[in-house]
């Protein structure tokens, strides 16, 4: 697999706050990589550093296997925090400047304006746009001439529900075309809906990273009940992968430290001569994971 971005031990400190702490990660071609973390966790600082806006204190990174340069940045489409354009220029004129900086001609401008639904307003000045339209123009400029990778920093922040839906739809569409994406967000469901890989960031550290699908499956909890809950509890606690148990209303909520399927549990208990009256797998959402991860990190 082709490595698009490789970050090695990147650090940045602002006064007493360690914004990013020896962060390392790798993004490979085709990934939709989510960087998930609460506000102030170092997402924007990290993206700022890999886009040459912020000077790292230490550490390094490579783009497309090469030392980062202005040429590598021309292959990147990025939407950073707020949409930054000249207020007195039209959408089209603003995109012409972007194209010129990236050494492209103007032939792709109409397409990205259509894709983002701004074509009818292309000759209107940027300052007359609603926030949602400004954000879409930022996406349009990032999509110009099909970049090798799309970087989106909180792309739906401050948008109304309709705007959020529109932007997400756009991202999914781009992802389906096979363009690699890095999405920074503090919204779990956004990462869950869009990304296939996630790194959870807090206080500048990566707490966890892996495939979104794995994160969901790791420690789901299983609901169990039987005629003799005391015996059931004893048997479960003896299971090699047992992690914790909560009893409520005659139902045992069991969490295992590794992936244990309900079928295997049923078989295990059957061997111990316990017959179940209730067995349900309860999927925990990434959100619960996320909150737990943050809580673990704080304590």
């Amino acid at each position: 697999m082709e490595t698009i971005l490789s970050i090695n031990q990147l650090s940045k400190r602002y006064g007493r706050i360690q914004a990013v702490n020896k962060l390392s990660l790798e993004v490979v071609k085709g990934q939709v990589f989510g960087i998930l973390g609460p506000n102030g966790s170092g997402k924007s600082t990290t993206l700022g550093m890999i886009l040459d806006l912020i000077r790292p204190d230490s550490g390094s990174f490579t783009w497309f296997g090469e030392h980062p340069s202005k040429e590598s940045r021309k292959r990147i489409g990025a939407v950073i925090e707020t949409p930054n354009f000249f207020p007195y220029l039209s959408a089209r004129k603003n995109l012409e400047i972007v194209a010129k900086v990236k050494d492209y001609d103007n032939s792709d401008i109409e397409r990205v304006l259509r894709t983002t639904g701004l074509y009818d307003r292309k000759n209107d000045k940027f300052k007359t746009y609603s926030f949602g339209m400004k954000q879409r123009l930022a996406v349009a400029s990032a999509l110009l001439n099909n970049p090798d990778i799309l970087i989106l920093d909180e792309p739906t922040n401050g948008l109304d529900p309709q705007g959020i839906a529109h932007i997400r739809e756009l991202i999914l569409q781009v992802a389906s075309e096979g363009i690699t994406i890095i999405l920074a967000s503090h919204l779990l469901d956004e990462v869950q809906k869009i990304c296939n890989y996630v790194a959870v960031l807090n206080k500048g550290n990566i707490l966890f990273s892996g495939e979104v699908h794995d994160v969901l499956a790791i420690s789901d909890c299983i609901e169990l009940a039987s005629a003799d809950n005391a015996a059931l509890k004893a048997a479960i606690e003896a299971h090699p992968a047992f992690h914790s148990i909560i009893e409520s209303d005659g139902i045992l909520l069991v969490v295992f430290s590794e992936d244990v399927r309900p079928g295997a549990i049923s078989e295990y208990l059957h061997q111990k001569n316990i017959s179940l009256s209730h067995l349900t797998e309860r999927k925990r959402t990434l959100e619960q994971h996320f909150l737990e991860l943050l809580k673990d990190n704080e304590s």
């Binding site: 040459d52 340069s69 040429e71 990236k102």
Partner: peptide, 21 residues
């Protein structure tokens, strides 16, 4: 200063202009 207040300087750098340029 417009480039700084509109933050277009950031956009220019991100899009592939070097700081010296």
């Amino acid at each position: 200063t417009n480039e700084f207040t509109n933050k277009t300087v950031r956009q220019n750098i991100v899009n592939g202009m070097s700081r010296s340029e």
